[in-house]
Simulated scan of single mutants.
Amino acid sequence: MWWFQQGLSFLPSATVIWTAAACIFSYITAITLHHVDPALPYISDTGTLAPEKCLFGAMLNVTAVLCAATIYVRYKQVHALNPEENRIIRLNKAGLVLGFLSCLGLCVVANFQKTTLFAAHVSGAILAFGLGSLYMFVQTILSYQMQPRVHGKQVFWVRLLLVVWCAVSACSMLTCSALLYSGSFGSDVVQKLHWNPEDKGYALHLITTAAEWSMSLSFFGFFLTYIRDFQKISLRVEVSLQGLTLYDTAPSSVNNERTHLLSRDL
């Protein structure tokens, strides 16, 4: 059996591969059509103009679904492993909410381009990156709380390193973005897709975009750490019938039906 056939390990793998493909395909399309510069454009800039924005939006919507599924499976896994530890239960629920809101932000970023609705686009980015970073932080705390009985120390340290990487990238991006959009470099910076080395704020622009790509890579790395965890988990669907027919609402004794969801492994 291949590693991606074990449990639900294909889920975080598919999330990372599909998201990377969305960024790469939209980047290649935007570069080919000369819609953006090859040197480190914003990720969302590669999905601003047609036709790449159609590809970018559609693929990121699928990414949001895959991310939500991965986050939910992780939530159920932690819940099953620690059914009576109140601190872990609270953190686990917080992580679920943060993760789902981050997925919502990803949908907003994908469907509202910065050149059309800048406020909506930025709000979506704050949800996706900001709350996504908090989700990573919560999961790292959970990894610490669950070691060594459930998690190994290596997993915790890897996730902590990725969280620190994400935090450094986020601070760099926020600081440089605040300086870049302060108005000192012109009013057209928000809508600008093409940059020349002679332009004012070019260095800040490169640092900001590099930090954004770096932060995205830290997210990819974090989700990849789920692969080993997901190899030992499967989900089942339990159907509980409340009547003998679809229109019978009277209570009756009907056997439950259990079927596998997504995986046949335990």
Rank of each mutant, 00 (worst) to 15 (best):
G47C: 09
N61H: 09
V73Y: 07
Y144L: 11
A94W: 11
F222S: 01
F223T: 00
I233G: 01
A170V: 13
Q145E: 14
V155A: 11
E257N: 10
S216E: 12
V138K: 00
A58V: 14
V138C: 01
G132N: 11
R149Q: 14
K192I: 05
H151W: 08
L11K: 02
Y75S: 01
Y247N: 03
H79Q: 15
A203T: 14
Y135L: 11
Y135A: 09
F137H: 03
W2V: 03
L246D: 06
V109L: 13
E198N: 03
L55D: 03
D248C: 09
K114M: 08
M173N: 04
S133F: 15
T175S: 14
N256S: 08
S169L: 04
S102W: 09
R228Y: 04
Q6I: 09
T115L: 12
F156K: 05
Y202S: 06
W157Q: 07
N86L: 13
Q242W: 05
L180F: 02
F100D: 12
F222K: 03
L262W: 11
Q145N: 03
M1S: 14
F185C: 09
T225N: 02
I28L: 15
E238P: 00
Y181V: 07
A20Y: 02
T209C: 10
F56G: 04
L127P: 12
A167E: 00
L193F: 10
H34G: 05
F222T: 01
I24T: 13
A250K: 15
G132P: 11
W3N: 02
L40V: 11
L261N: 10
F222V: 02
K153Y: 12
M215D: 06
E85K: 08
N256A: 09
Y226M: 10
A22D: 04
W18T: 10
A211V: 08
I227V: 11
C166G: 00
L81M: 12
H260A: 07
I17W: 07
G243I: 07
C103S: 15
L266T: 09
V254S: 10
L40M: 13
I43L: 14
A170D: 05
W165L: 14
K93Q: 11
A30E: 11
L204I: 13
K93N: 12
H121E: 12
N82D: 08
G95L: 04
Y226S: 06
T63C: 15
T225A: 01
N256G: 00
I126F: 15
R90M: 07
L134S: 09
Y72V: 12
L11D: 02
D265Y: 01
T29Y: 02
S182D: 13
W18A: 07
Q5C: 13
T208W: 00
V65G: 08
A22Q: 04
L96C: 00
R228L: 05
E84K: 15
Y75A: 00
G95Q: 08
V122S: 07
A64M: 06
A120T: 00
S9A: 13
I31T: 15
L49T: 06
L91E: 03
E52K: 08
V150D: 05
D45F: 06
T63F: 11
W213Y: 08
L179A: 10
P83I: 01
V189Q: 05
L142D: 04
A128C: 15
V16W: 02
R90L: 10
S133Q: 15
V97I: 14
I43K: 08
I88R: 00
